[in-house]
């Protein structure tokens, strides 16, 4: 039973690990911290997996657990760390012709997101991932109306950082 559960978890998480990587990339600014947070997210996912009933998609459930880990359970402070050494993550874009505009844009976007506070980071991340307001409000535990208002403010903040 436990072994079946474990096999299923490993395959679910292996397929969806990119969600966790993206969260690590916005909440940490160097590779060591990225790996640390990824490890903590993996632990929390596995710890709670037996209670995942499959009412929702694994990925939906994973967004919540992984974001919560980054916002509330991860031990290290995320604000004071030095800016990321961008060489450890190659922002290569899937494009047929080589054009580094998008690559630079992605770098700029991550750099701007790093300047937001933890909650705004979560809001912007869920917006970029195209999540509906219902899911955003359920994940954060706030009303849809508040999620909307707060989202607009977070977007304004991000725009101001990107285009001062």
């Amino acid at each position: 039973m436990q072994k079946d559960l474990e096999t299923k978890f490993l395959s679910d998480f292996e397929q969806n690990q990119n969600i966790a990587h993206k969260i690590c990339r916005i909440y940490t600014t160097n590779q060591d911290a990225h790996n640390d947070l990824f490890q903590e997210i993996t632990i929390q996912l596995w710890k709670n997996y037996s209670r995942f009933r499959g009412d929702s998609k694994f990925s939906t459930w994973m967004y919540r657990v992984a974001l919560n880990t980054a916002i509330s359970l991860y031990r290290k402070s995320t604000r004071t760390v030095k800016t990321q050494d961008f060489s450890d993550f190659a922002y290569k874009i899937k494009a047929t012709t080589y054009d580094n505009t998008e690559e630079l844009q992605l770098k700029a976007l991550y750099k701007a997101i790093h300047k937001l506070n933890d909650i705004d980071k979560a809001l912007i991340f869920l917006y970029l991932e195209d999540k509906p307001y219902k899911e955003i409000s359920e994940t954060l535990g706030i009303t849809s109306v508040n999620a909307r208002v707060k989202m607009n403010r977070a977007k304004e903040k991000l725009k101001n950082i990107l285009n001062p």
């Binding site: 474990e6 490993l10 690990q17 990119n18 990587h21 490890q39 596995w46 509330s72 991860y74 970029l128």
Partner: peptide
């Protein structure tokens, strides 16, 4: 949306090890 997947993907074996490592939560 068009950003690449992380270059360091973890294999199932690595995920297994991570899942069973010690938590260091607050």
């Amino acid at each position: 949306e068009s950003q690449p997947e992380d270059s360091k993907r973890f294999s199932k074996v690595e995920i297994y090890k991570l899942a069973h490592s010690k938590s260091s939560s607050i």
